[in-house]
Design a protein around this nucleic acid. Structure first.
Length: 183
DNA sequence: TGCACGATGAAC
DNA sequence: TTCATCGTGCAC
């Protein structure tokens, strides 16, 4: 499979977020490759973005976001669900792209439309926090067949506390895709 | 050492 | 609209 290289992630987060749409998220568990096509994402631009966890500064929780690009930032939310992000831009910039939904491609059971459901279906939990996405068992790859689609831009979900940052259209999804979490 | 609070999902 | 459930961050 054609794995995305480090330079792909070391670019403007809004660009990376949109280009992640259509790509394949691959997690190999005990020899079984779980594969989902990314159909919905959100961009978190860095420590200046009040909706981003990194706006709190460098802490135990956010140190993955402040690390080098191309690594997974996985955290537990509401004590119940896991959320999976991809770190972008240069080390120290603390930006990331939240993966909100995937469409089943291979070996996925259950629903995948939402950040928590996506992680459950893909067997992703915080043990994978900080994991290098250029590794052999957990990575993002080019899809086998490229497709043409339109990208819808909307405000991010669940970040009303972020003042004017909550209004920016940093949520992106594939237009008309049935696996988008909500329209 | 205690406590408020989530980048959610499911039930009521 | 409410609630489950717990790690993190910061106040005391």
């Amino acid at each position: 499979m054609n794995k995305l290289p480090r330079p792909f992630y070391d670019r403007d987060t809004v660009v990376v977020a949109q280009e992640l749409l259509g790509k394949w998220l691959v997690h190999d568990v005990a020899g079984v490759p779980h594969i989902g096509k990314i159909v919905e994402v959100e961009a978190y631009l860095g420590a200046h973005d009040l909706a981003a966890h990194s706006a709190k500064g460098l802490t135990e929780r956010t140190k993955t976001m402040f690390g080098p690009p191309g690594h997974a930032y996985v955290y537990l939310i509401y004590g119940v669900h896991h959320c999976m992000n991809v770190v972008t831009e240069r080390e120290g910039h603390a930006a990331a792209v939240l993966l909100r939904a995937v469409a089943p491609v291979k070996n996925l059971a259950g629903r995948t439309q939402g950040p928590g459901l996506l992680c459950r279906a893909m067997n992703i939990d915080r043990r994978l926090n900080g994991h290098d996405l250029l590794s052999g068992n957990f990575f993002i790859a080019e899809p086998e067949a490229a497709e043409i689609f339109s990208i819808v831009k909307r405000p991010r979900i669940g970040v009303d506390y972020a003042k004017h940052w909550a209004k920016r259209r940093l949520r992106f999804y594939i237009k008309g895709d049935q696996f988008v979490s909500r329209f």
